[in-house]
Design a binder for these strands. Structure first.
Lengths: 329, 329
DNA sequence: AATAACTTTGAAAACGATTTCACTAATGGT
DNA sequence: ACCATTAGTGAAATCGTTTTCAAAGTTATT
């Protein structure tokens, strides 16, 4: 492996001079610069980023914490983040917490060990009091989901509005008994979809029965289960606000199998607006989340924090959601 | 930030002794070990992995090259890899080449700069002659796709068989005019699906017309386009072997819209067996790829290479494919 | 002509760990 | 009682960079 020393030896100059050329410092004579560059070329020299990181304490890897990559919402999010990171010479490390507190902490620990320079939390299981201790080792920002009392930069979506406009739409279509599905922690901001739904219902004088609230709604399989749970009820809902397009898809698959008429007997509203939403039959009405924009905003903020162009300060950047009406409602 | 020096000072021992405790070396008295551990705890000391990497030359980050993460096949693949990597204390860096040669090289260059210890190529655009130069900087293995003449460990699937059994199935269902879709490079092993299809057709005395071969079939949008291209033909195919479930989905979406009877008028065979394949209507017959197993095998091999437990040698580990019959054929 | 202000350079000190080496102390086998 | 081995320890070298510092050379300013 060739080092800066080899380049120095070949040219006859010092390591310092070579380093100055590499880093484009001023105060290097044109002749030396030329010769150094030529020697680097000749030797196929490339700086060792590990040594550089040790000396400069600048770390250009960003950890992105998500529940799992096979969830399309998150793979899309990481996709958009990685694209921009790479453009800027930054690296993205995938950290799948599988929604486990302990795994989340394990990854945060990589901040301590300097394996990553900063962390973007796109899901969060631990309380802010626990997470905040890690800030000492690098910037932490939240993207999409965050726990209460978070004092850190936050990029998120207006979940309350999502719950509100979705429910309002179901009501306008004539549905009155509207179920709610939620996934994961009840304690993060995602929960505001629920308050949004409640507000919409209250404004129209409709009730939300306890038995119409379904938890642990993560994926298609959960959607299938929830379909049967709904159908088993004495007082069945005639509309359902789901926590993701996948849950909606699971419900719709079972509805078709059991000849439940959609949307007449059961209107199903998705969340996310994933590509499949418009491809399946019936296509899924859903709340569109601007995933790409959110990822872009988060990674750009992180990059400027790592470059030291900005100080992390508590701020909430909220991106808009909108409704996409298709066949399932 | 606390360093090993701080721990040494607090305990009164040397850095060497502290290092021995950290790395569980023998030849440290029980008493000192205890005291060092206690001091580490007290100071909240965590070793700096950058410094460690510089000295030991052991790099525990693995780059995974894929076209894009939002393709479910690849997000699933990276998912399975990351899970096992994390268990072993390794990190996974996502590298989205977007199927561009130049981006692939950019990422491979991170091997030179020591930003990653090894590379798993799950897609490959460049020729082996170009890629092989990078082996000097760390192990490179191929997973799923590889260029001709590759002399490196390869984990892959029996693509030829995939093409063969898929086509055989379509023929058995009574279809005789079977189109083929392919994505990406014509020069990697993925292309063997085509030879598999040809073999099956030849065995049954069927022809494959030039106009039935569709290229650039990556996603749903391409599927839609291909549907119309097929329907525009004088001599329409009555079955199509697609390059992925997503392409199949695109074709099926347009078929429904245009009242083309599936599978009678047009049988559609997917590839991958993604979760959506069984959820949509009609559900998609497809060739199941054991993505998880493949990812596991690749990452485990890479980890043992990086640990120095094995030498990289040219070998091909081929995992089996099988057919899943549903409604679209 | 003297002084100030830049340019240009290399030696050496970081960065924070691991590892080699030399040394001493303790133990075991004869 | 001797030698050989094993345990236990710390000083110093090392990994490959960047950066500080001092010094020397050059140009500009008075």
């Amino acid at each position: 492996m060739t080092t800066i020393e080899d380049v120095a030896k070949l040219t006859g100059y010092s390591r310092a001079t070579v380093s100055r050329v590499i880093n484009n410092y001023p105060y290097v004579s044109e002749e030396k610069r030329r010769k150094v560059l030529q020697a680097m070329e000749q030797l196929g020299y490339v700086p060792n980023s590990i040594a550089r990181q040790l000396r400069t304490r600048i770390n250009e890897t960003i950890g992105v914490l998500i529940p799992r990559l096979s969830n399309p919402f998150f793979s899309k999010l990481v996709d958009s983040m990685e694209s921009i990171a790479a453009e800027n010479g930054f690296q993205v490390i995938v950290c799948q917490t599988r929604s486990e507190k302990s795994r989340e902490l394990l990854y945060l620990n990589w901040l301590k060990t300097r394996q990553m320079g900063g962390v973007i939390m796109a899901s969060s299981e631990n309380d802010w009091d626990v997470i905040k201790e890690y800030r000492a080792f690098g910037p932490i920002i939240f993207c999409n989901e965050y726990p209460p009392h978070t004092e850190a930069p936050i990029i998120c979506l207006d979940q309350h509005k999502g719950g509100y406009i979705g429910t309002k739409h179901l009501i306008e279509r004539g549905h009155t008994k509207i179920a709610h599905c939620y996934a994961g922690s009840q304690f993060t901001n995602i929960r505001e979809r629920f308050t949004g739904q409640k507000q919409a219902l209250e404004e129209c004088g409709l009730e939300l029965r306890e038995e119409w609230i379904f938890k642990d709604a993560y994926d298609t399989q959960d959607g299938r289960r929830i379909y049967y749970e709904m159908m088993a009820l004495e007082n069945r809902p005639d509309g359902v606000f789901t926590s993701s397009d996948e849950v909606a898809l699971g419900i719709l698959a079972e509805a078709r199998k059991n000849h439940t008429k959609v949307p007449e007997e059961l209107a199903v509203l998705g969340f996310d607006d994933q590509p499949i939403a418009e491809l399946v039959y019936p296509s899924i009405s859903t709340v569109h989340q601007p995933v790409e924009k959110m990822g872009k905003a988060a990674i750009e903020l992180m990059i400027s924090l790592l470059k030291g162009e900005r100080e992390p300060r508590q701020q909430v950047i909220e991106l808009p959601l909108h409704l996409v009406i298709r066949e399932s409602t």
